[in-house]
């Protein structure tokens, strides 16, 4: 389970980095969304092997439960990521309205900006 998670995290970071380096705004946006989730996955993976453990909801005090702290942490991180993603959507939309382009390379064209 841990190996698969590690591979998944590696793939997600790779995909995110690739997308962030693209020119299209939409791809950049998706890249950052995947990046946030990949980072959340890293934290989630730190709670160890979940085999044979129950979710951290105290229904039966006898059965072992997975470490609840990483889950609490990523809940916070998800909320923050939600806010930042909303900001990024607006920023890219505003850039599109101002510059009439969705291509990040055109945005920083030296000839235009001077």
């Amino acid at each position: 389970m841990q190996l698969e998670t590690a591979l998944l995290i590696g793939v997600m970071f790779t995909v995110a980095t690739y997308l962030v380096l693209q020119r299209s705004f939409v791809k950049i946006l998706f890249g950052f969304l995947i990046l946030t989730n990949a980072a959340n996955f890293v934290v989630l993976a730190m709670s160890g092997r979940p085999d044979g453990k129950v979710a951290p909801v105290v229904l039966d005090p006898q059965s072992p439960m997975v470490d609840p702290l990483p889950q609490a942490l990523i809940l916070t991180a998800i909320v923050i990521g939600f806010g930042v993603a909303a900001y990024l959507v607006f920023l890219l939309y505003r850039l599109f309205l101002d510059q009439k382009t969705t291509n990040a390379a055109e945005l920083y064209d030296e000839k235009e900006s001077g």
């Binding site: 020119r23 299209s24 309205l97 291509n103």
Partner: peptide, 22 residues
């Protein structure tokens, strides 16, 4: 407001958010 500027443009009201596929 930045929407103002867009609204006065004579372009037809297509959905503007579709990016180019490059």
């Amino acid at each position: 407001p930045i929407e103002e500027e867009v609204r006065t443009e004579p372009e037809p009201a297509q959905n503007p958010t579709i990016p180019d596929a490059t």
